[in-house]
Design a protein around this nucleic acid. Structure first.
Lengths: 197, 197
DNA sequence: GTCTATATTTTGATAGAC
DNA sequence: GTCTATCAAAATATAGAC
């Protein structure tokens, strides 16, 4: 059942992605939904709450997707490959929402900001744990775990910026490139002389 | 001579970085400069023009810095190392301006937008040329040049997000990590079965 | 170069009818 | 659940005095 609340959500994702949160007005969202701006406030208490809802759902689904993809993967290298693949796939398939979740943190109220940052930390810690295990098992080079996890996540976000669903490359082909790049950058022998954190 | 125009520029960089372009008002900029908002318009014709000025100067200096660092580097691997090092150094030393240049494109007028995108393309093409030469010389694995250049630039931007000038790591130590990561990801043998663009 | 005063538009949000 | 009408505040920008 496609409710008006869902429609507002979809329209807001489109507009926040194209113009940014602050540059998008409630009237604009209402206009593209075919209703008056006052009617928006029946479904959401504020403009900020629409943004918060988008970010919350996106982060929860991103983390759920990752956990699902890691389930049953035991080998440490396979786990990192699966994690990168999961991250890239989600970001390509959900381009607009992940862009908003990455760039519109400043539009949130302090309380909502903290909640989203906590969810983001949770997600990052899954990656950091894999890197840590890989270093311990001497599969990965031992470097600063936090720096590497940010590097990997940021690198994999790159695809979402230029990816075109109508383009010639498939999601999996792109994910494979990032996967190989990350594993090549991570593996032992790359960082001589640097000690574990 | 620290002119008022310079002061407006510095204050705007700080505010656009902290709050975003659309969330920052002309009154706020004026307030932190110790003048009235009307006085801003003596120095700049519009708020958008302040943003444009920041982006233009940043892109010009970024490209100039890269060219200077590449000058005299002949070996292909040395050129890529120097390019990554230059990119990371600039982004860590000029955190706020590069963040604005990367994230506030949507605040520009169409004409100014095109001008900045052109400068950005110019910069990226220097990286793409190095990758292309590296593939031709069979030093790098032969993969999609555009994808790799975006991946490298995005990856190297990661540092600017968390870097703290007061922190324990030096700019050069961080640049070394990214340099090694990129070269590890790029080098031949990583991408079996993928043909050149 | 900076000021005061103001024009114009638009914003997010609320009240109350239907 | 959507409407009309409206509020109060804030925005960018301009005019003209000093």
């Amino acid at each position: 059942m496609p409710s008006m609340k869902d429609k507002i959500n979809r329209v807001a994702i489109e507009l926040f992605y194209q113009k940014g949160y602050f540059a998008t007005s409630v009237s604009e969202i209402a206009g593209q939904c075919g209703i008056q701006k006052a009617s928006i406030y029946y479904h959401y208490p504020s403009k900020e709450n629409i943004l918060f809802h988008i970010q919350k759902v996106t982060m929860d689904e991103l983390t759920g997707y990752l956990r699902g993809n890691l389930d049953g993967q035991d080998d440490i290298e396979a786990r990192m490959r699966a994690a990168v693949h999961s991250h890239v796939r989600f970001h390509l398939n959900r381009q607009k929402e992940t862009f908003i979740a990455n760039s519109e943190l400043r539009g949130l109220t302090p309380a909502h900001y903290r909640e989203i940052v906590r969810k983001r930390d949770e997600y990052e810690q899954i990656f950091q744990q894999i890197i840590r295990e890989g270093c311990k098992a001497a599969v990965f080079a031992a470097v600063d775990v936090r720096i590497l996890s940010y590097a990997i996540l940021t690198l994999c976000n790159a695809g979402a910026i230029w990816y075109n669903p109508e383009g010639r490359m498939s999601v999996d082909a792109i994910a494979d490139i990032y996967e190989t790049f990350v594993l090549g950058g991570l593996k032992k022998g790359q960082f001589p002389g640097i000690t574990p954190e």
